[in-house]
């Protein structure tokens, strides 16, 4: 085993242990164990709230969404199946979909001024200051990171703006000053290539 493989193996073991813990907590929550919900909250609420903040760019809304998500977890933990996905993926997805609903309900899509600079770094000549740059750099050992790097920058950035920052196609079009149909093409092309690369 090479040094890189050893590190990756250790990381995988650690990630698996953490996932096992979350899985166990979800199983207890299915049995309406309130302490388990509290423990789960202590473990993942910071991360989930961080994801919500990226999407909503608003502390009030992200806390609302976090609260709604935990009530959904409380009520629907029995629906979670480990063989269909990791616990964190399941919870983050619940949260993301609620955040997307909230975006629409609050018409936040026109209120993204404060996020402009952060997102703009995606499109700069150098993306060194972009949070995505660090993410992609650290993700180079993952398949997703490698596949994203193979995409055309415009396609990749459109995907990241939508997934990570919650931009609609129309929002992206306004941001990059291109027609919506152009953005749709970027997204379609980017996702098709990403799917091919990821081996769907």
């Amino acid at each position: 085993m090479t040094g890189g493989e050893v590190i990756e193996h250790q990381y995988t073991e650690k990630a698996r242990a953490e996932a096992d813990q979350l899985d166990h907590l979800l199983a207890r929550i299915t049995l309406k164990d309130q302490k388990a919900l509290q423990q789960l909250y202590q473990k993942v609420s910071g991360k989930l709230n961080g994801i919500a903040m990226k999407l909503l760019n608003d502390a009030d809304l992200s806390n609302d969404v976090l609260q709604e998500t935990f009530l959904q977890i409380w009520n629907n933990a029995g629906e979670y199946r480990r063989d269909q996905g990791e616990p964190m993926t399941w919870m983050a997805s619940l949260l993301r979909y609620r955040a997307l609903d909230k975006l629409r309900a609050e018409n936040r899509e026109q209120k993204r001024r404060n996020q402009y600079e952060e997102v703009q770094t995606l499109f700069g000549e150098t993306s060194a200051g972009s949070p995505m740059a660090g993410l992609l750099q650290q993700d180079t050992d993952t398949k997703l990171g490698r596949c994203l790097e193979t995409l055309d920058a415009l396609n990749r950035n459109a995907i990241l703006m939508a997934y990570y920052y919650g931009y609609s196609r129309e929002d992206i079009a306004i941001h990059v000053e291109q027609p919506v149909n152009t953005v749709k093409s970027w997204l379609k092309r980017g996702l098709t290539r990403l799917a091919q690369c990821l081996g769907h």
């Binding site: 709230n49 903040m53 964190m88 993926t89 983050a92 993410l135 997703l144 990241l160 990570y164």
Partner: peptide, 20 residues
């Protein structure tokens, strides 16, 4: 969902409010 989830690997944690 599983394929894109790693994008959140480095998303910074934001402590929720106590009231949440």
């Amino acid at each position: 969902e599983a394929k894109l989830q790693p994008l959140h690997q480095n998303t910074p944690e934001v402590a929720p409010r106590n009231s949440t």
